[in-house]
């Protein structure tokens, strides 16, 4: 980098020669001028770095983050302490991992819909299935679309 100094008379937006014979108010403006060739990479960097929000969140207004406790979903790789991204705008389908409201509390389970029967299925043989009468009796709070597993916690999420 070279550092250049340009004088702007006050009120002007472009540099003008300053006449030293007359007193003039000037602002000193430091310009950093890159020396050497412009980076050829700059042109193709216009889209910016990968943003996980763009990749993982389809709709910010309907996506919520919840934190999982317990081991009832270990069979699909969701462990105690993991965060899950929940999209409320999706229509729950058979096989989705969902957040459901049961007895005034949240539960995370796999939704199984066969024929007239709706089941909240834990992915751990230690827990029983919860059989729901029908879809109309089930309150699905949202559909889980991603889970976050911290393998070597660093930084803010630690």
């Amino acid at each position: 980098m070279r550092v250049e100094c340009v004088f702007y008379p006050v009120g002007m937006t472009h540099p003008l020669p300053v006449q030293a014979a007359r007193p003039t108010l000037v602002q000193a403006v430091l310009l950093r001028v890159p020396a050497g060739f412009p980076s050829p990479a700059q042109d193709s960097f216009d889209d910016g770095r990968i943003d996980l929000n763009d990749v993982l969140i389809r709709d910010v207004s309907s996506t919520f983050i919840l934190r999982v406790t317990g081991d009832s979903m270990e069979g699909v790789g969701i462990y105690d302490g993991d965060e899950v991204l929940v999209d409320r705008s999706l229509t729950p389908r058979d096989g989705d991992v969902v957040i459901a409201v049961v007895d005034g509390d949240f539960t995370i389970k796999t939704l199984q819909i066969h024929h007239q029967q709706v089941v909240l299925h834990p992915e751990n043989p230690a827990y029983p299935d919860v059989v729901v009468g029908g879809l109309s009796e089930l309150v699905v709070w949202g559909v889980v679309v991603h889970s976050i597993r911290h393998l070597r916690p660093v930084g803010r999420s630690a």
Partner: peptide, 13 residues
């Protein structure tokens, strides 16, 4: 702060 504080997320089991 369920949606505003990373350390206060709503838990689900």
């Amino acid at each position: 702060g369920y949606t505003t504080d990373w350390n206060a997320l709503r838990t689900v089991s």
